[in-house]
Computed example of a mutant assay.
Amino acid sequence: MTVSTGSTSGVGSTSEVGLTSGGGNRNRTRPNALALGVRRVGYEVKSYFRQKDGLVFTFLFPIIMLLIFSVAFSEASFGQDADGNDVTAAWFYLPAMLAAGLLLSGVQNLAVDIATEKSDGTLKRLAGSPLPVFSYFIGKIGQVFVTGVLQAALIVGVAALAFGVPLPSEPEKWLTFLWVFVLGIVTSAALGIALSGVPRSGKSATAVVIPIVLLLQFISGVYLPFSQLPDWLQGFASAFPLKWMAQGMRNVFLPENFEALEVGGVWDLAGVGLWLGVWLVAGLILCRLTFRWIRKDS
């Protein structure tokens, strides 16, 4: 026996939903929710890379911006390290683009994608299938994690190989990168799922989500040095997770003497972990309260 959920948007087959009872074998055990979620990760990743607009505006966008800034400000110096070496534009913007990639992969990608699936009937069909909502979430978050890892590797690779940016040699720096990345990507994914309930249709999703994401990038130290923003704007941006993701990434990739430019003159990794943890919990709660397979007013 085969369970089907429809045919549009590529979600109609048994393999995509991850459900089968094995042909005529009625005694075969149905996979649990976690196993179904892991199966769905592969489908979500394939779907993501088939969307050309998504590749440009979420996956490749931070890399493109790093290239633009690195070339446009190739003659500029953004300061010096402890040995007197100039910090180039590529070096300075590397942590910012990594943080922006986390936000784009999680918040923008999922908010627009899920809102579109809700609008075109994909989620309504999934609601009529045995696919648990937990498995659906695992698929989406897994897709964000996989694409986020690939994106981060490309950004770091371009910075190091094309522009000669020195990478950290201390293991503790890479350990910091690991937990900031994992906490940042999971937090962004949870917030993206929660934000997907705001647009009233798939057509309006980009108009609702992209301005929010773009505003956060400008006030959180991604495109503009955070220390040069007005104090009141720094305080406002500090209430949102992107500022803390960027700060954590700066601790990993910028010279130690750049710590003096941070608020309070410290990297404040404890604050990075605390604020990202708070937003993760808030995102999970909002997901639980607001997520619906279909809009109530539809």
Results as ranks from 00 to 15, higher is better:
residue 218 F to W: 09
residue 2 T to F: 08
residue 200 R to P: 04
residue 245 M to N: 07
residue 223 Y to S: 14
residue 122 T to C: 09
residue 156 V to F: 11
residue 196 S to M: 01
residue 151 Q to R: 15
residue 165 V to N: 02
residue 245 M to Y: 02
residue 197 G to P: 04
residue 73 F to H: 08
residue 204 S to Q: 14
residue 80 Q to H: 07
residue 11 V to H: 10
residue 248 G to Y: 00
residue 275 W to L: 11
residue 286 L to R: 01
residue 174 W to Q: 04
residue 241 P to A: 12
residue 121 G to K: 12
residue 35 A to N: 15
residue 279 W to R: 05
residue 39 R to K: 15
residue 296 K to L: 09
residue 70 S to T: 05
residue 59 F to R: 02
residue 291 F to K: 06
residue 163 F to L: 01
residue 12 G to F: 00
residue 247 Q to E: 10
residue 85 N to F: 00
residue 93 Y to G: 02
residue 288 R to D: 09
residue 218 F to G: 10
residue 127 A to L: 05
residue 263 V to C: 05
residue 202 G to E: 00
residue 165 V to Q: 02
residue 227 S to D: 14
residue 138 I to M: 09
residue 118 K to R: 14
residue 270 A to W: 00
residue 108 Q to A: 12
residue 106 G to T: 13
residue 85 N to H: 06
residue 143 Q to D: 13
residue 2 T to C: 01
residue 7 S to I: 13
residue 50 R to L: 05
residue 156 V to P: 01
residue 136 Y to C: 01
residue 19 L to R: 09
residue 147 T to I: 05
residue 78 F to P: 03
residue 101 G to M: 07
residue 224 L to H: 04
residue 117 E to C: 13
residue 162 A to R: 13
residue 110 L to Y: 03
residue 88 T to P: 03
residue 83 D to Q: 12
residue 259 E to V: 02
residue 279 W to M: 08
residue 285 I to G: 06
residue 93 Y to V: 04
residue 81 D to E: 09
residue 298 S to M: 14
residue 24 G to N: 12
residue 264 G to H: 00
residue 209 V to K: 07
residue 291 F to V: 05
residue 198 V to T: 02
residue 15 S to P: 00
residue 28 R to G: 07
residue 100 A to G: 01
residue 109 N to Y: 03
residue 204 S to W: 14
residue 43 Y to P: 00
residue 97 M to Q: 12
residue 185 I to A: 02
residue 32 N to H: 15
residue 228 Q to G: 10
residue 159 A to Y: 11
residue 226 F to P: 01
residue 112 V to S: 00
residue 143 Q to M: 09
residue 35 A to H: 12
residue 227 S to G: 05
residue 214 L to A: 14
residue 198 V to K: 03
residue 55 L to Y: 07
residue 71 V to K: 04
residue 144 V to P: 13
residue 178 L to S: 15
residue 239 A to C: 06
residue 195 L to F: 13
residue 53 D to T: 15
residue 250 R to S: 12
